[in-house]
Design a protein around this nucleic acid. Structure first.
Lengths: 316, 316
DNA sequence: TCATTGGACGAGCAAATGATCGTATGCGAG
DNA sequence: CTCGCATACGATCATTTGCTCGTCCAATGA
């Protein structure tokens, strides 16, 4: 019999005793008549040779695996993947919100004063709503994207507003529409003292939770009338597939320069290099946009669902 | 969603990260936003609820499992089970011998002086033969069963002789036939000074490796003419199924008192209460005998093969 | 409203684990 | 036969793990 096979036999014995039998390495060493480090090596060999197979018998396991793969591929600090319930699509959105709320809670529950940024998107809003109410007046919450509608009214239902309401923290809202009417208007806004002050607060924030938008006829930017038909057409022509804070990205995640971007009032993406930008979005439709954001390296964290995760990993 | 299910979700996540992802509990704690002891508890829960399934992908695994089950059931210090190669039956005997030699080597290789007992049986002999030659003149080897044939000649091929030859150790042989011609002859032998001296050496031995014999027309005792037709018939009538050192046992492992046992010269089984008696035998045919020996509680170690192990465990 | 009890939580500690290093052992080439 | 190389082994140490205990919080009942 082969010398290597004999060793593998021993390794399999050791593996059984360790993983199934539940013995300690010392006991196994006694049983097999080798030293404790010898057992160590046998176990390492058994794992390396694939003799030991571990299976996690729970639906969530595939989600964790997907998240791990995404985190590895795109160098994320973390990636949460929630199950996509095919039977009840509305559940997926709720799962996403709960997962987002969990991450938010990790920050908000801390008692040291903290600055947190929030982007736009229904998912961000839903995450905030899923958060438990907790008194944290010491925190500051900044919106990274304008919350003024075309008609000049402030959006009462902004995520920052909701979060500040829930915690009693301070709120900092960008006093601007997402897209200015003209380049000159944008310049005027950006040079406001208040605007700069808010940008400073945002720069000091620990982390940011932002939505990821798609660019097509169902794009939020378009449906909420932040951009018009002509602007959408231009973006589609330039092959934009997604947007972060209103900044359009191509399929490789590179920012797209165009007439629209001359008038976007959000803080530039490049300003967030050192903070933990977390994207939250899910669903097959948003997958290409998420992939673009990941490829561009803009995100350090991601909260998504199984469907999007699978699509992205399959897209290579 | 159920509170318990949520916890199990978390537990499954933790289990995946730990067993598949290979993260430490500290890292998992960071990922999941719980304390390290929390992860500990989650992993314990996952194991307890059967979320984690470990499979050892190697034929030897079933052998180890069988051995473990036998050791548990019959309170053995250890139980080695070797694979039964259905294609090559002669291999089974060699495997058994190698396994026996391994256990023997554990004792023999020690440098402190050691006394070791050996019983009868082809398996014991084969185990000794499979042992590597090693110089250990400090050891003492005792035979627990007579090695004098009916014609008065000493059995040159006794296991003790072979082992002493291999190691240069001292040999102590019982100067008697296995079964005396008469009760009186047995008395005479047992009262010899030499006989008593050997019994004392045997009593001082650390461990004993003994064969397990079956009682039927193919019984070694009978085929080697240690007992005659009439004696075999008596044993069968009294429902003996096996023997240890010539002492017949019924199917529950209880010693059988009969005319034959009045003349057996081996040391009584009850004398070995405090030492490590290891049985070695395999094969479907010997399985009932092995089961009897186990049920009687005579053995503290067992070396057998897959076929016998399966039969014994199935016999309940 | 307050006391009580059950359960969860985290600090701290002992045991177990994985890894490194120096040493021994065997094997092949010269 | 001897040298050099490579491989394997076991002592030792840092890290990780499992566990115990005291504490706290929430639910329950008087």
């Amino acid at each position: 019999m082969d010398k290597f096979e004999l060793k593998l036999d021993q390794a399999a014995r050791a593996a059984w005793l360790s993983y199934v039998g539940g013995l300690t390495q010392d006991e196994i060493a006694g049983q097999l008549g080798v030293s404790r480090p010898g057992v160590q090596r046998l176990l390492a060999l058994a794992r390396q040779e694939g003799v030991v197979k571990v299976h996690i018998d729970h639906p969530i396991a595939t989600c964790v695996a997907l998240g791990h793969a995404l985190a590895e591929r795109f160098e994320l600090r973390y990636c949460d993947v929630v199950p996509a319930n095919a039977d009840a699509p509305e559940d997926a959105a709720r799962y996403l919100a709960v997962a987002g709320a969990k991450r938010l809670a990790q920050y908000v529950e801390r008692s040291e004063p903290l600055t947190l940024s929030l982007g736009s998107g229904r998912s961000v809003r839903a995450a905030v709503e899923a958060l438990d109410r907790v008194e944290r007046p010491q925190h500051r919450f900044v919106s990274l994207i304008g919350n003024v509608a075309r008609d000049g009214s402030s959006n009462r239902f902004d995520a920052v507003m909701a979060l500040a309401d829930k915690t009693g923290g301070e709120r900092f809202l960008l006093p601007a529409p997402v897209v200015a009417e003209s380049v000159a208007e944008r310049q005027a806004m950006l040079s406001q003292r208040l605007f700069k002050a808010i940008a400073d607060v945002a720069a000091a924030s620990r982390a940011a939770l932002i939505g990821i938008g798609r660019i097509d006829a169902q794009a939020t930017l378009y449906q909420d009338h932040f951009i018009n038909d002509a602007e959408l057409d231009e973006l589609l022509r330039l092959e934009a597939v997604g947007e972060l804070l209103g900044w359009p990205l191509d399929s490789h995640g590179a920012p797209i320069e165009c007439s629209l971007t001359q008038r976007v009032t959000s803080l530039p993406l490049s300003r967030f290099g050192d903070q933990l930008m977390v994207g939250i979005a899910g669903g097959r439709d948003k997958a290409p946009a998420i992939l673009a954001a990941l490829r561009g390296g803009w995100l350090k964290g991601l909260i998504t669902d199984e469907v999007a995760a699978r699509w992205i990993l399959a897209a290579r």
